[in-house]
Simulated scan of single mutants.
Amino acid sequence: MSDSSQQLVPPFTRETAILKVRKAEDNWNTRSPQHVALGYTVDSWWRNRAEFVNGREEIVRFLTRKWQREFDYRLIKELWAFDGSRIAVRFAYEYRTDSNQWYRAYGNENWEFNSEGIMHHRHACINDVRIDESERLFHWPQGRRPDDHPGLSDLGL
């Protein structure tokens, strides 16, 4: 990696924005609320669907609840746009409920970062669609999506 790709701070270039999006995807695919929360400022503000979350402690509680009911979670994010300290992404993730019903969630996020590259605002709009297990597209072992696994555009999403 070049030195510029190591510095994932605003103002973003196309290269650093893509790397920032992948880093966020990788963090979320750990399914570790404490690890994910470190990507957000201590006083971070989220709108996630109809829920408002303030600060790392609430992020940890929110994600703990989320992953207690969303099993086999796998996420793919893709850069949509960027400018200065802001990045817009689209994403999809698949999960199953405790009744073995599969879902694919589609969404968009708008992010804003501080000068150190830590996110302080996250606006997320998400819609869940029921799918059959045979319709799943995200097939990799739990954790980071392999580099050779198709992204959203490659999958026609």
Rank of each mutant, 00 (worst) to 15 (best):
A17D: 03
R90V: 08
N54E: 08
I59E: 05
R144V: 12
W67T: 09
R56V: 01
S153K: 14
R49V: 06
L79D: 06
A37C: 10
E57A: 13
R130T: 14
Q6N: 10
H123T: 05
N114D: 15
F113G: 01
D128P: 07
G117V: 02
R90K: 14
D72L: 04
V21K: 04
T97C: 04
N29I: 03
V129F: 13
E78Y: 09
R69I: 09
W45Q: 11
K77Y: 12
S99P: 08
N127T: 15
R104G: 01
F82M: 01
Q101A: 03
E57R: 12
G39T: 02
F113A: 01
E58R: 12
V36C: 11
S32V: 01
I131Y: 06
A124L: 12
L8A: 04
R144F: 04
N29F: 03
P10C: 02
R22V: 03
D3Y: 06
L152A: 06
G84N: 08
Q101N: 00
N48A: 12
G143P: 03
N27H: 09
M119S: 15
V42H: 13
N110I: 14
Q7M: 14
I87P: 04
R49W: 10
R22F: 05
E70Y: 05
R47N: 11
L63K: 07
R65H: 12
P11T: 06
E51P: 01
S99I: 04
E135T: 02
A88C: 08
Y40E: 11
G151D: 13
V42Q: 15
K20R: 15
S4H: 12
L137I: 00
W140M: 01
E133L: 03
E116I: 09
N110A: 14
L19H: 13
E109D: 04
T16R: 10
E51Q: 15
L75G: 00
G143A: 02
K77F: 12
K23G: 05
N110Y: 14
V21P: 00
L137D: 01
N29M: 07
Y73I: 06
L8I: 02
I59C: 11
L8W: 06
Q142H: 11
R122G: 00
I76V: 15
I126D: 03
D26N: 14
S5A: 12
Q6K: 15
S4R: 13
V36Q: 01
S4F: 06
S2P: 09
Q101C: 06
F52I: 13
V89A: 07
